[in-house]
């Protein structure tokens, strides 16, 4: 048996399950309580779990993320919702200088079992300060794990293993996915997702399209168009951005001998650059063409729809990049 859920409902259900099953788990963040969550992920939680466990915070990202780290050290299992990646920059010090380093700096005496969730990405005409895709920055930092659920299955199944992880896990949820629907199995055992591996979302033989998060649906759309033109594309969803599943990348590229990396981050210093470097390091001699990438244009994301669309990866750009490998 299966049932149909939206991404939002899947994440809400995952949090509900965690709160119901473990008294150490609590949710904190801006407007997670009375407002019901900026994106309604925690609607109804305040009534069900009470204000001790569903904590509305002040607009104090540095303070409440740091407090969550302290609470994790003190024996709790906090889920912190930072409204968006854009605001997470105000908490970057605590995530990078404290959470990520704590175990190593203390010689292994203390772990920080913390989950930070945040919205990422562009595509909703929210302009430059609300459209960042900075998960690649976070993926640069040793000591944290970085997840990017791009499917209903991952939205539902990544939180439990993230909470079970003894170290900090940062989860990036692309805002363009929240209303997406999909089927999930009914049994809970089938819901757990392995948060160490990438996943092939479409099997192909001619080109590997490697992507994550909000770009996955665009890559799949491009693969559909390419199939109609006789090019069989394999689509790899990285879904774990740190540590990267190098073996999965290598396997897909070795099979297809061509690769396009799609990343909503800006090209310079991007996660796409890291994926390309790993391809060069590991599978260079298997390639039939230089590796290509489709990233955001090097411009702050503009407001006007036509400009925003032009700044972001799109299926047509991916199709063009793939065809370029066969020219």
């Amino acid at each position: 048996m299966s049932r149909t859920l939206s991404y939002r409902e899947a994440m809400r259900e995952a949090m509900h399950e965690a709160l119901a099953n473990d008294p150490r788990v609590f949710l904190m963040g801006e407007d997670v309580g009375r407002y019901g969550g900026t994106y309604a992920f925690s609607k109804g939680f305040l009534d069900e779990f009470g204000p001790e466990r569903i904590r509305d915070t002040p607009l104090s990202e540095l303070g409440f993320v740091g407090a969550a780290i302290g609470a994790a050290l003190g024996g709790m299992r906090p889920i912190v919702e930072v409204m968006t990646v854009n605001f997470s920059l105000l908490a970057l010090d605590q995530i990078v200088n404290t959470a990520a380093l704590y175990r190593h700096m203390s010689g292994g005496q203390f772990s920080v079992p913390l989950v930070v969730r945040m919205t990422t990405g562009a595509g909703r005409q929210l302009a430059a300060q609300h459209s960042h895709s900075l998960e690649g920055w976070y993926a640069h930092i040793p000591g944290i794990k970085v997840l990017a659920p791009a499917t209903i299955e991952d939205a539902r199944g990544m939180l439990a293993p993230a909470l079970a992880d003894p170290d900090p896990v940062v989860i990036f949820e692309h805002a363009g996915l929240f209303n997406m629907e999909g089927d999930l199995p009914d049994t809970r055992d089938d819901l757990m997702v392995d948060i160490r591996s990438a996943k092939v979302r479409r099997i192909g033989t001619d080109v590997a399209i490697i992507t994550h998060g909000g770009s996955l649906s665009k890559a799949l759309a491009a693969a559909g168009q390419l199939a109609a033109e006789g090019i069989s594309a394999e689509v790899v969803d990285l879904r774990v951005l740190r540590p990267l599943d190098t073996a999965a990348i290598v396997a897909a590229v070795a099979k297809c001998r061509r690769a396009v990396v799609v990343d909503e981050g800006w090209k310079s210093g991007s996660l796409a650059a890291e994926v390309m470097a790993r391809i060069m390091e590991n599978v260079f001699y298997e390639l039939d063409a230089p590796v290509a990438r489709v990233c955001s244009e090097e411009v702050p994301i503009p407001y006007a729809k036509h400009l925003e669309d032009a700044a972001l990866p799109q299926p047509e750009k991916i199709v063009a990049a793939v065809k370029g490998l066969f020219a």
């Binding site: 740091g66 407090a67 780290i69 302290g70 609470a71 709790m76 906090p78 010090d93 404290t98």
Partner: peptide, 12 residues
């Protein structure tokens, strides 16, 4: 850097 941490330890 330690101040938010102390707040969280107290919260726990």
């Amino acid at each position: 850097g330690g101040l938010p941490l102390a707040v969280g330890l107290a919260l726990a």
